[in-house]
């Protein structure tokens, strides 16, 4: 098994410009069942590069193809509307790659789609997710990993690839890798993913990559201590050297000056270690810790 996406995933792509086409083609080449594209003015045509139909709305795409997952790659100003449209069309899993979505938009989307709608929303500002050997939805490079037993969850893209790659070189594969995104408001939190891994019979160990800012890592750590203390878990928190008050690339990666506290990498590491979770000082060390735990 795996979490959130697998061989039954049928993807409709919202945003079929050059980026959307490039990544959808890669997802399709990996074996992911990409069934349709959506474009308000190109309904009734064919998405030539993918060889699948284009519909004017997500609802039409769902009705005609049975799509159950959406990949959102529209520009930030249109992302709120795109996600709400996918939800209204009955899509169960919405993966939003787009970055730069206003925080007020995402707060409203979270309320409507996740809290009240119960839809699985991944992102925004994320690389998507991959269940190796089954499906790849998003922009994660598939050829650096392979099927296996480690569940990986991360707020960062390339940092995740680094760890997947080092694990793969040691012969360790992945059940599912979920990039949850670097924004202040994201649909799926660390804790949601870790709970799903805990229920997945194919996931035997968990690696998670956090960042400065917010408190999601702490919540996840507490739950791990209370519910799955025997599962091997290793972590890394990026940004030990990040100064307070400075946003480090990701909109959510900031230790607020005069904020609630507990947002720095050192504070997160200390708290997580108090829960019995091994936290590395850098990504390579995290991979090495995992390799040691599993050998």
């Amino acid at each position: 098994m795996s979490i959130f996406i697998d061989e039954n995933t049928k993807v409709v792509v919202q945003g079929i410009g050059s980026q959307g086409t490039f990544h959808a083609q890669r997802n399709q080449a990996y074996g992911t069942d990409v069934v349709a594209g959506v474009h308000p003015k190109k309904g009734g045509t064919t998405w030539e590069e993918l060889g699948v139909p284009v519909f004017a709305t997500v609802a039409e795409a769902v009705e005609a193809t049975g799509a159950n997952t959406s990949m959102v790659m529209v520009p930030a100003p249109f992302t709120k509307a795109a996600i709400l449209e996918a939800q209204a069309a009955g899509i169960a899993t919405i993966v939003t790659i787009t970055e730069g979505v206003p925080v007020h938009d995402m707060t409203e989307v979270y309320d409507t789609v996740v809290r009240r709608g119960g839809v699985r929303l991944i992102g925004p500002n994320c690389p998507g997710l991959i269940s190796p050997g089954k499906a790849n939805v998003g922009i994660i490079p598939a050829d650096i990993t392979m099927p296996g037993k480690v569940g990986l969850v991360s707020r960062s893209g390339t940092l995740t690839y680094q760890i997947m790659h080092e694990l793969a070189q040691a012969g360790i594969g992945i059940s599912t890798c979920v990039g949850i995104g670097g924004d202040p408001v994201i649909g799926t939190q660390f804790l949601d993913v870790i709970k799903a891994f805990a229920e997945d019979p194919d996931t035997e160990a968990i690696a998670f990559v956090g960042e400065i800012g917010g408190s999601e890592e702490q919540l996840a750590g507490q739950w791990i201590r209370d519910h799955i203390p025997d599962t091997p878990v290793v972590g890394y928190i990026a940004g030990f050297e990040a100064p307070a008050g400075k946003q480090m690339g990701h909109a959510g990666a900031i230790v607020k000056e005069g904020g609630p506290g507990g947002e720095s990498a050192a504070e997160k590491k200390e708290l997580l270690e108090s829960y019995g979770i091994a936290v590395a000082m850098n990504p390579s060390e995290a991979a090495q810790l995992m390799i040691k735990r599993l050998s």
Binding site: E241, M248, A253, P283
Partner: peptide, 23 residues
């Protein structure tokens, strides 16, 4: 390339006894 990887890079530079000039 990638905000997380760059943050990690600052960390590794510090762990090697130096200080990064920028992100």
């Amino acid at each position: 390339n990638g905000a997380g990887l760059v943050m990690a890079t600052l960390d590794v530079v510090a762990q090697s006894g130096g200080r990064a000039a920028n992100f």
